[in-house]
């Protein structure tokens, strides 16, 4: 059997693919890898389809033993990867023989590493996806030490590739389109433009919570309405929350604006304490 035995999980190891979008009308969040470009890259490096299930590792610390030979790749921020304690490259296909032990260290910057294994993690799909949705409890449970992960049938690796790690900026400047509920805020563009925030340690896969400037909004609540990934919701305390992949499908707090999808991986990689500004788009 092609399998991987987990020897250590680190703070949080989750099975993630590209999620289950298209089910919001049933109350089902999209879920999926927060830094999707990194998962897709890891999959390409080991010869998998881009949407194969890999592991999303929060702050590394993941160790595993291969039962049979397989190809792996680790992407995301720059990180130490070792096979039988010998340093190997991240962002590159690495061959494991039977009984080799893989150890992924903590990234020097950023938060989330992605591990792809040839054949993909072959756990049962739910609503067309193997992703763990931490909000709704859909998909496989969080990975535990000593768990044995089944692997699927491998494809053909594309061969050596030189890929730079994700660069993590010291300060994030995030574009935002105003609306749908910018009319709940007095001069929303000016408030967003002038505000200064840091990423809170209460952030998770549901949303990136920000500390800092409190946005001034109308008091009250909306009837619940549909929420997109990247929506910047402002609860009564005025501190914005940027919805990430495990976000609830509906919500009753006004959304001042929406962050374009291409910037969400940067937010998903931002450690607590990272400085953040918004740049309102016209």
């Amino acid at each position: 059997m092609r399998q991987l035995t987990v020897l250590a999980t680190g703070p949080q190891a989750l099975v993630q693919d590209l999620g289950r979008p298209g089910n919001a009308h049933l109350g089902v969040p999209p879920s999926g890898a927060l830094d999707a470009p990194s998962l897709k890259l890891a999959n390409r490096l080991v010869g998998n389809p881009e949407n194969a299930a890999g592991l999303e590792l929060l702050l590394g610390g993941f160790h595993a033993r291969a039962h049979e030979s397989c190809t792996i790749a680790v992407t995301g921020p720059s990180v130490d990867v070792r096979v039988n304690e010998r340093l190997v490259d991240s962002h590159s296909p690495v061959h494991l023989r039977a009984d080799d032990v893989l150890a992924i260290g903590a990234p020097q910057t950023g938060l989330r590493s992605y591990l792809a294994v040839s054949g993909g993690i072959d756990v049962p799909a739910e609503l067309g996806s193997r992703s763990t949705d931490l909000l709704s409890g859909i998909g496989p449970a969080q990975i535990q030490k000593d768990q044995v992960l089944p692997l699927g049938t491998p494809g053909i690796p594309i061969g050596e590739d030189v890929v730079p790690p994700v660069q993590i900026p010291h300060e994030l400047v995030i574009p935002i389109t105003l609306g749908p509920r910018d009319d709940w805020f007095d001069d929303p563009a000016k408030q967003l433009d002038g505000g200064r925030w840091t990423v809170s340690d209460r952030s998770n896969r549901v949303g990136a919570r920000l500390d800092g400037t409190k946005l001034d909004r109308i008091v009250g609540e909306l009837p619940s309405e549909g929420m997109v990934t990247g929506a910047v919701q402002v609860p009564p305390n005025g501190l914005p929350v940027i919805f990430l992949n495990d976000h609830p499908t509906t919500g009753g707090y006004p959304v001042i604006g929406v962050v374009p999808g291409g910037y969400l991986p940067h937010i998903a990689q931002a450690r607590p304490g990272t400085k953040m500004r918004f740049r309102p788009l016209g």
């Binding site: 549909g226 929420m227 509906t250």
Partner: peptide, 12 residues
């Protein structure tokens, strides 16, 4: 259309 999400007074 990829997602169509009705709610109390809106459709996303």
């Amino acid at each position: 259309i990829d997602e169509l999400v009705p709610a109390a007074r809106t459709v996303l």
